[in-house]
Amino acid sequence: NQASVVANQLIPINTALTLVMMRAEVVTPMGIPAVDIPRLVSMQVNRAVPLGTTLMPDMVKGYA
C-alpha cells in the first residue's frame, strides 16, 4: 500500500504548505501520494484542512 499525504496540523485556507505540516500515512481512500511531498512545499491549500485529514489533489492549488 502506498502512503498518502496527511495533515500534521490544522492548515488554514490559503496557507502555503511546509514539510512540518505534512506526514506520510497509509490511508483509505488514497490521497496525494507521499512521494509528492517535496512538490507540495510552498503550494497553497484552497480550503482549511483539519489535523489528520488526507490531502486530495483538489485541495491544493496548482497540484492537479
Rank of each mutant, 00 (worst) to 15 (best):
N1E: 15
N1I: 15
Q2E: 15
Q2C: 15
A3E: 15
A3M: 09
V5P: 01
V6E: 02
V6R: 04
V6P: 00
V6K: 05
A7M: 05
N8A: 15
Q9L: 10
Q9H: 11
Q9W: 09
Q9F: 09
L10K: 07
L10H: 11
I11P: 00
P12A: 10
I13F: 08
I13D: 06
I13K: 05
I13T: 13
I13P: 11
N14V: 03
N14P: 02
T15S: 06
T15I: 08
A16P: 14
L17F: 02
T18H: 13
T18L: 07
L19R: 05
V20R: 04
M21R: 03
R23Q: 08
A24L: 12
A24R: 03
E25Q: 04
V26S: 15
T28W: 04
T28Y: 06
P29T: 13
M30L: 15
G31H: 01
G31L: 01
G31N: 00
I32F: 03
I32N: 01
A34P: 06
A34F: 10
V35A: 11
V35G: 10
V35D: 11
D36K: 03
D36T: 05
D36C: 05
D36P: 01
I37H: 02
I37A: 06
P38D: 06
R39I: 11
L40Y: 03
M43F: 09
Q44R: 06
V45E: 00
V45I: 07
R47C: 07
R47M: 13
R47L: 12
R47K: 13
A48L: 09
A48P: 07
V49Q: 02
V49E: 01
V49G: 01
P50N: 14
L51W: 07
L51S: 13
L51Y: 10
L51Q: 09
L51I: 14
G52I: 02
G52A: 11
G52Y: 08
G52C: 13
G52D: 12
T53Q: 14
T53E: 08
T53A: 14
T53K: 08
T54G: 03
T54V: 10
L55M: 12
L55N: 00
L55R: 00
L55G: 01
M56W: 08
D58T: 12
D58N: 15
D58C: 15
V60F: 04
V60A: 02
K61D: 09
K61E: 13
A64R: 09
A64Q: 15
